[in-house]
């Protein structure tokens, strides 16, 4: 009950307040305040206009233009640097290619030199070997000849001694001939 009562009261109060407002009218239509509002509006607008047009807007415009210029310059510089980098890379690659060619040449030269040295050394070694072999052959021949002579002498001596021991008289010439025949045979 109390709740309904207070609510009704509240609504009534609201309605009354609304009436009051209607009686007083909208403050917007209170013409007595118009000169005041218009005067202060014009003052405010003039202040804002002068501050903006004399100070703020030229300054901001200049700053924006400056920034745009800086960005354009930086982009141009970056483009230039990029071109430089590309050129440097190309130069590097060229240098690399020519260095490779040069290295190939040097390697081939070195190979040829080594081959020449090697050939000469081999030839020299061959000659030396051949000389040594010939010398060895000769000494072998000498040794062989020496050995044959020694064998003939020993055989003759031995045969003579044998004949003497058996009581014969050794005829040197006959013994010689017999040994030679035996050696051949």
């Amino acid at each position: 009950m109390t709740t309904t009562n207070t609510t009704t009261e509240a609504v009534a109060g609201a309605a009354e307040a609304g009436h009051e407002a209607a009686k007083a009218g909208m403050p917007q239509l209170d013409f007595s305040t118009f000169p005041n509002q218009i005067f202060w509006l014009l003052v405010t607008l003039l202040v804002i206009y002068f501050v903006l047009s004399r100070v703020a807007l030229p300054r901001i415009g200049a700053t924006l233009a400056e920034r745009k210029g800086a960005i354009t310059n930086d982009l141009a510089a970056a483009e230039e640097l990029k071109l430089k980098a590309v050129a440097a890379e190309k130069a590097y690659n060229d240098a690399l290619v020519s260095a490779r060619v040069e290295a190939g040449k040097i390697v081939a030269q070195a190979k040829a030199d080594i081959q020449k040295d090697l050939d000469a050394a081999i030839a020299r070694a061959d000659a030396e070997i051949a000389a040594k072999a010939a010398e060895s052959e000769k000494s072998i021949g000498e040794i062989r000849a020496g050995a044959l002579e020694a064998v003939t002498a020993v055989a003759t001596d031995t045969a003579g001694e044998l004949v003497a021991a058996l009581g014969g008289k050794a005829d040197a010439a006959a013994v010689q001939a017999a040994v030679t025949a035996a050696l051949k045979g």
Binding site: A10, G13, A14, E16, E20, A21, P27, Q28
Partner: peptide, 24 residues
């Protein structure tokens, strides 16, 4: 006047939606 009293009293709601536009 009743509205004024209501606004300051404990019961009732204060409806003054246009007061904020008053030039003082």
């Amino acid at each position: 006047m009743a509205g004024e009293a209501q606004a300051h009293g404990e019961g009732g709601l204060a409806f003054h939606p246009l007061d904020q536009f008053k030039v003082t």
